[in-house]
């Protein structure tokens, strides 16, 4: 009996050790990345229901021309009931780029980010049932985007522009586009502490929240996003509210105003 329990304890210990670095669901990664299982556990919380899914489209140039501004389009409109999209890289000092909670918007987002090295990039999409669907692509890069100082500091008026928003709505195509001026310092450049926008909330005129973004360090300097709405359900205006980690408030209103 004693011997039996010892074996049981050893068995439990072994399976616990196993669980620490092996996810509950082991997937066949199309990119054979050495980091995906780690992120599946660490970024997504080791979900029990997860798969790679071609319906999640992640589109980017094959090579990053500008490591500070890599464009990315994530499109999960082929899935229903999307609640959250986690966008991340496998390789880089800070893997998570952002979480997008589309709410009343389409589960589709255009963004830019800073890249530190060649890496797979993933969009992990959680639906209402708790199932995760993961899409991705590969980006080659010379790198250095995350560990360099913001380019804003090359000019001396960056503080005056902090939090400036440029953007508008296009009702016919259901687009809302905005650029927010912010250095988005990763904290990885020598002597420059973390300074990022942490959150952007989008609401209609009656204050109802329509969509939300939770930003991490790798989002590009002067973050630029396109949100997509069903044109029939496009609000006539969109309030943008957010804050950075130094408590600066960000506030603006996107309308269908003609461009300059």
């Amino acid at each position: 009996m004693f011997r039996y329990s010892l074996a049981l304890v050893a068995g439990v210990l072994a399976s616990t050790a196993h669980a620490a670095d092996t996810p509950r669901v082991q997937l066949t990664d199309p990119f054979s990345s050495g980091m995906w299982e780690y992120h599946q556990i660490g970024l997504l919380g080791d979900p029990a229901d997860i798969r790679f899914d071609d319906r999640v489209k992640v589109i980017a140039p094959a090579a990053a021309e500008d490591a500070f501004n890599v464009p990315l389009l994530v499109d999960a409109t082929a899935l229903d009931d999307v609640e959250e999209i986690v966008i991340s890289v496998d390789y880089g000092p800070i893997p998570k780029i952002l979480s997008f909670f589309p709410g009343a918007a389409e589960p589709k987002l255009a963004l830019r980010f800073k890249i530190d090295q060649a890496t797979p990039i993933r969009a992990s999409v959680r639906t209402r049932s708790g199932a995760w669907h993961v899409g991705g692509t590969l980006i080659d890069a010379a790198g250095g985007g995350c560990t360099a100082p913001a380019q804003a500091y090359a000019s001396d008026d960056w503080e005056e522009k902090l939090g400036e928003i440029h953007g508008r709505l296009w009702a016919a195509s259901g687009r809302a586009r905005l650029i927010v001026d912010h250095p988005m310092d990763t904290g990885l450049a020598d002597g420059i502490p973390l300074f990022i926008i942490e959150e952007l909330r989008f609401s209609n005129d009656s204050g109802e929240e329509l969509a939300r973004l939770a930003l991490s360090e790798p989002v590009n300097e002067d973050p630029a996003f396109t949100l997509y709405f069903n044109p029939e359900r496009m609000p006539p205006l969109l309030h943008v509210r957010g804050r950075d980690n130094n408590g600066n408030e960000i506030e603006g209103t996107l309308t269908g105003e003609e461009v300059n």
Binding site: E164, I165, H166, R168, R177, I179, D222, G252, T253, E257
Partner: peptide, 9 residues
Amino acid sequence: ERAILPRAN
């Protein structure tokens, strides 16, 4: 793009 899009705040 930044020069073309209107100010929103």
